[in-house]
Design a protein around this nucleic acid. Structure first.
Lengths: 127, 127
DNA sequence: CCTCTGTCTCGACAGTCATCGAAACAAGGA
DNA sequence: TCCTTGTTTCGATGACTGTCGAGACAGAGG
């Protein structure tokens, strides 16, 4: 459980995209993926990500995010940092404001990992 | 932060499947989703899920999972419980052994949430 | 230069989590 | 019945996490 200050997660490793269901995950990849899933494992971060992603232009500045929650600035800043270190968002400063946007590739890699082979799916999925 | 003993997560709510990127997540749905993502946010649980999913027949008994890790029985049992309460796996006893299998629907819901609209994707994705 | 606003870093606190040993429970067999 | 094996529950402990206030840093505009 040593939680030293790791750099930003980079999920671009080749085998990262094979579904969980197709073959056992090797230990190291599991650690990388877990770090990203853990970043998604908080309601505030999930909403932050969603707010950024769905915001006009695909980006949002912190000032537009802070008011949505009953949380103080440092807390929002902390969550944004976690998302950034997980490789889920990127931020750049433009003048006074800092704009964040999502990294679609990381999001997509996660989606691929969770893919379920239709063969494994029970036949009658009552939608 | 009251973390009372909530029942198993049920992600079958209607709007649960719309992507994060299409519209802001409402607070309650964020809580449900976060609980499932948090369950995935541990390397051991990710590997357990992967081992179960990719095991012959789509199911595995605890005895086949324990040996893979340098962890004691109670710890594995704890992680399996977390996965079960997140709605990611189900377990049933058959004689002496308990067999676990994944719930593809939950996995698929998560995949849908992480879907990225191709329009948001940068053009040249060198795959 | 100073000041103001937006955002982050630091340090602290309470709550939660991962892990374990010990013990309980369940099923099968002698 | 007792014993053995597989699995879970309980209680404890150390590590991590979410939150905040105080203060620092960055840029814009006097």
């Amino acid at each position: 459980m040593s939680k030293q200050d790791l750099p930003v997660v980079d999920l671009s490793a080749p085998a990262c995209c094979s579904p969980l269901t197709s073959e056992p995950l090797d230990a190291q990849r599991a650690v990388e993926l877990a770090r990203v899933f853990k970043a998604l494992g908080d309601p505030v971060r999930l909403r932050l990500l969603s707010l950024i992603a769905s915001h006009e232009g695909g980006e949002a500045c912190v000032c537009e995010l802070t008011g949505v929650f009953d949380l103080k600035g440092p807390t929002i800043s902390h969550h944004l940092k976690v998302l950034k270190e997980a490789g889920l968002i990127t931020g750049d400063r433009r003048g006074t404001w800092i704009y964040y946007r999502v990294s679609p590739s990381t999001l997509r890699t996660l989606g691929d990992v969770l893919t379920v082979d239709p063969a494994d799916e029970p036949a009658g999925v009552s939608a």
